[in-house]
Design a protein around this nucleic acid. Structure first.
Lengths: 214, 214
DNA sequence: TAGATTGTTAATCGATTAACAATC
DNA sequence: TAGATTGTTAATCGATTAACAATC
């Protein structure tokens, strides 16, 4: 019998659970029920129980799940218990937002360098992270043992840059461009398509019928 | 018989289709087949055909779908054929990234103002967009007829800020914080949880076994 | 014409939800 | 104890994929 496998929807919900459980833990609560977590996130309790079951942590009826063990197990499951040495490729606003967001650092994203083609940016620092020329990507990847790249370059440069990133030996790309990258399967790619979210919101909002003065 | 309804997965894929079809159209192609679109995005042709069917556009066997009509129909479906007057609330790097991204403007996101609490930012401009104090949110929402807010404040301020946004009369929030907002149902909220994407990538990458020198 | 592609109907697959005995 | 919550098994739901006749 193999390891229990979690579907992608489950994996995507785990970070929200982690946040709620962390808060409870910080407030000194030793247990939290699936019902409470579900209430906070407007999910069904059964869904939370099902999701949490993949961690292997067993809860106590009437009491809930032990917060400490659950935190540890979720972090382990997401591999957020190790640090991943990473680079931001494309040091624009989006790249700087990722560098400056402490949430990712807490979850093991250890950004060691940033790369850009803009001579005015090269040599500067963003929150202590040095911005380097793209020419130094391979050298720095080796030197710093980088394994992950946050790709925040303009779409027009995405494929070309991703190929350079892959050639440098990086094995995971968090892709914030809207370009479907063509790379060998040995590189893991996670596509963040912000336009998808905007599309969902737009459809949900529908057409506005402003209250006229007529 | 009612209007055909599209599931959220379909809606989320439409922007990618739009991009491919736009490229073909710009290259002067009058038709594009579902097979081609699927190939570009590494999807199944049947999935593309099924998704495109919600637009009501009919393709020609052997030829494909008419690019011009398809573009128009997808934009119509997503309501990307109208402009939505919007504000960025939280003028940090992420907010500035959204303001500076021309893709959203092309899809009708018309950012008219930015709001922040930082006195050093208030009064400045980001790509021509004025940064205003949060106190002026209600006034400006009325004056500019804003209907959408891009919420890019720190998590700690998310709920409070969202309430102010809702009170100002804005009816859609694109929420980039990791906070599940508690707001009346009259406000549409789209949650962008970046940590979810990072979780998926992390699980996919697994634990690294570096090639040792041993 | 021959055959690639469409649109529709049916089958499969996976995720969510329901039901309920076990239990703290 | 009584009853809220857990974990598991089964049912439902929705999305994806397969099959195939129609057709350009």
């Amino acid at each position: 019998m193999g390891k229990k496998i979690a579907g992608q929807p489950t994996i995507r919900r785990l970070p929200s659970y982690l946040k709620i459980i962390q808060q409870a833990h910080d407030e000194g609560q030793f247990f939290i029920s699936g019902t409470i977590i579900a209430g906070e996130l407007e999910l069904e309790p059964i869904q939370v129980r099902k999701d949490l079951s993949i961690t292997g942590i067993v809860g106590k009826p009437r009491i809930g799940y032990p917060t400490g063990e659950l935190l540890k197990a979720i972090r382990r499951f997401l591999h957020w218990d190790i640090t991943r040495r990473a680079a931001v490729v494309g040091a624009g606003h989006l790249g700087q937002a990722i560098i400056g967001n402490p949430e990712f650092a807490r979850h093991g994203l250890d950004i060691r360098a940033a790369f850009d083609t803009d001579p005015r940016k090269i040599g500067t620092r963003v929150k202590g992270v040095e911005v380097l020329s793209m020419e130094r990507l391979e050298e720095k990847t080796r030197e710093l043992a980088l394994e992950l790249a946050v790709l925040t370059v303009p779409s027009a440069a995405a494929q070309e840059t991703a190929e350079a990133v892959a050639a440098a030996g990086i094995r995971g790309i968090w892709n914030f461009t809207n370009v479907k990258l063509k790379l060998p399967d040995s590189v893991s790619v996670q596509q963040e398509n912000l336009a998808s979210g905007y599309a969902v919101l737009s459809v949900r909002m529908g057409y506005h019928r402003p209250r006229g003065r007529s």
